[in-house]
């Protein structure tokens, strides 16, 4: 059995300027949101794709039935926010990993935050303003 021996960092933790715990909280957020998303997302997939008829039974009336209950409204709202923030934060990590030029990194992240902000806002509005008698 090999034991894991994580060698000590070769340079001291010297940081100039402002210290911030942002990366620590973002690391923690990925784990906490992940645990909650396991329940929210996997149940969502089972309900929508497997239970009585799966995707074949989904239509406007089905959505109207679900969102007549505050339980599913809150479920979907929580899932939307957590999945989008978790996914956006994950994408931020990936951009930081691969985009080496400062400019490229900056603009990729601006595009990411714009898209995410728009989707979170749109999804939230759709859940809160849903009208079963539309059209």
């Amino acid at each position: 059995m090999t034991t894991l021996d994580i060698s000590a960092p070769r340079s001291g933790a010297k940081r100039s300027g402002q210290r911030s715990n942002f990366e620590l909280y973002s690391w923690l957020f990925m784990r906490i949101s992940g645990i909650i998303l396991v329940v929210l997302v996997l149940s969502h997939l089972v309900i929508m794709n497997l239970l009585d008829g799966g995707v074949q039974r989904i239509n406007f009336a089905f959505v109207a039935g679900r969102w007549s209950s505050p339980f599913w409204q809150i479920w979907d709202l929580t899932m939307l926010w957590l999945a989008m923030l978790h996914g956006t934060n994950g994408m931020r990590t990936i951009v930081n990993d691969y985009a080496e030029r400062n400019q490229t990194r900056f603009w990729l992240k601006m595009a990411l935050y714009t898209a995410s902000g728009f989707i979170i806002l749109l999804g939230t509005l759709v859940i809160f303003t849903f009208d079963p008698n539309i059209g």
Partner: peptide, 30 residues
């Protein structure tokens, strides 16, 4: 998988948003 699911989620919120347009538009995309 994280990146793929993220991009699907963007599209999925857009297609679901069609419930605010009309039942026909939503049923068509579904």
């Amino acid at each position: 998988t994280g990146v793929s699911v993220f991009f699907f989620l963007l599209v999925h919120v857009l297609d679901t948003a069609l419930v605010r347009v009309s039942p026909e538009a939503y049923d068509l995309i579904i």
